[in-house]
Design a protein around this nucleic acid. Structure first.
Lengths: 344, 344
DNA sequence: CTGAAAGCGCTTACAG
DNA sequence: CTGAAAGCGCTTACAG
């Protein structure tokens, strides 16, 4: 199947030059005369010479390739992050190789093992849900492969991180509900073993406290996967709460949509009777009726920032910074589900 | 930054064996004694030896890596396909490197150029919308890199393809509308320069014809991107059609959801007054109310099939098949938006 | 401005 | 069952 391809040496023979000269001419080395460069490049074009980048990578010990480990590619948030990574990496001449942990610790360990084999110059990762301790990533760091985490980041060792201010975003969302007049505000929370969901819950609580609103544990429902179905069941629980809620802040968009639908069926007017806010700005949030107020978590920008940081780490000879955390600015997108001011 | 790593040679010296023996022991070569294998493997473990896979790739001329070119990673359909590719490739020990054409022909050409440099052993691609002629992919084929297309496949040369039967799926969807009693059935069509959307339109027409329903050009609206917004505008046009429609088959889910919403606002009961079918089974289709009847296009399975086919092509020494087209079975998922039988 | 030479870390055909 | 040797296709320090 494979045809044998033209090499530098072939080109050299053809032109009566040394392979080293060809290599330098093609690489626009300043010491080579313009005349030679032109000759070489024309011949290369003519013979359809394509440099063997594997040989080059091997020789230089640089693959210009970065590895990305995500829980699942088909989760919209991650596909946006990957898109941002690819976008920036492509501009800088880097390849992006993707692995899915499927949220399995075992698989994540396998992947980090594979990634040690010199294939990639840097790794960007979001931890699997199952992952509590991240020693397997420490191994990568130990052999000198730069590492950047995003979203779910390790808490058990210092590393580069791209995050958003989950606490602040949740605080802002909750305070927005308070500002439009909500008094009984519920929260659908994600698994509290994951830092980001813990922070969202804390932000919610802090906003209540700051504004002198009472807090009852019954105002919080926990959803392990924050799935649409779990959202439905949380919303039904909220319906049974001792006094009617007038605001609900949800840790993601899917559960927020469940709340809209369940309360609409119970003859609540949204946003008049109940205001709802989600998190992530999924495409569905601007399609559902009423449109959903939500937090833009800027997944694409997170990906770009991660790529930028990892490439800087790869290319900087002297890295003086041991680790770096970048917090990406979020944005509260106010839509119909929290529009109306209510009488106070 | 980079620490210098242990090599085969280091291991060899340590154990007083030849590098070739180490290489074979680690690779479980049958000629090596069990005793030696054990010694070598233990030492390798002890010194945390990791084979340099770039050196190995270079030597063997095999990278165990496949390139994937998609229009956009963050389009759910493609992220599902990629997920399927990664899933199968991972099991087989292949890496997946991703490129986004952003639906730009120029960028797609750049990418195919990059892919010629020996980095990948095979390429899976979905053509950019802009791409009409695919000579740039022919170059890959010419230098012996196996190629598999999915979804948007080239019409100007023979190649391996993973597709669905768009004609048949559209036919089935339309006939389902007819079977539940619809008489005036509209269609929101995608750009007719793309084969799959043409086939969906043809399938729609064929079903009308077979069942003796009249066809008027006013029953078809064209949407270039099949975006939600375009869907809204098509739906508004349908509202003005000379007689009321009782069924609409849409070339994707987003436009179908627009139709649901626009007609609901015009006081249509769905599905009683109007039945609606989408295409692709996006997550939103089971969340929107009423739930959307749609075609499961099995994107994940397409990805798996593409990966399987490309790996077979890479590994088979003697390829007797010049090109192969696999058609993945689709499924009509009947939900609320087309549930009700109507009086005939 | 150009060339000869060494070598990156593996693998494999050949020899014993 | 093990080893010596050659070589994959580049790049680069050194020499002239």
């Amino acid at each position: 199947m494979k045809k044998s391809r033209i090499t530098l040496k072939d080109l050299a023979k053809e032109l009566n030059l040394a392979p080293s000269t060809i290599s330098r001419a093609l690489g626009d080395h300043p010491a080579i005369s313009e005349a030679t460069k032109t000759r070489v490049k024309e011949k290369a074009e003519e013979l359809a010479f394509i440099p063997n980048s594997i040989a080059s990578s091997f020789r230089r010990k640089k693959t210009r390739s970065i590895g990305v480990v995500v829980p699942r590619i088909d989760v919209h948030f991650h596909s946006l992050v990957i898109s941002g990574i690819e976008e920036y990496a492509y501009k800088k001449g880097y390849n992006v190789t993707i692995f899915q942990s499927k949220d399995s610790l075992t698989r994540e360990k396998e992947i980090t093992k594979i990634l040690q084999n010199n294939m990639v110059e840097g790794v960007i990762a979001c931890l699997a849900i199952e992952t509590k301790r991240s020693d397997h990533f420490k191994n990568l760091k130990k052999i000198g492969i730069p590492l950047v985490f995003y979203d779910r980041v390790p808490s058990d060792f210092e590393s580069n991180k791209i995050v958003i201010n989950d606490f602040g975003a949740a605080f802002q969302a909750t305070e927005h509900l308070i500002n439009i007049g909500c008094k009984n505000i519920g929260h659908i929370a994600g698994p509290q073993t994951t830092g980001i969901f813990k922070a969202r819950l804390e932000g919610y609580k802090a906003a209540l406290k700051k504004n002198g609103l009472p807090f009852h544990s019954g105002l919080i429902k926990y959803a392990n996967n924050l799935s649409y179905e779990e959202g439905v069941s949380c919303a039904k629980d909220f319906l049974k709460y001792k006094e009617p809620l007038d605001g609900i802040f949800c840790a993601n968009d899917y559960t927020a949509i469940s709340v809209i639908q369940v309360f609409q069926k119970a003859d609540y007017k949204i946003p008049d009777d109940l205001s709802i806010i989600g998190f992530s700005n999924y495409p569905i949030s601007r399609i559902i009726e009423p449109n959903l107020t939500t937090i833009n978590d800027r997944a694409f920008e997170m990906g770009q920032a991660a790529a930028k940081l990892i490439i800087r780490q790869i290319e900087d000879e002297e890295v003086l910074i041991d680790s770096e955390t970048q917090s990406i600015k979020t944005e509260l997108i106010i839509r119909e589900s929290s529009m109306k001011k209510r009488a106070v």
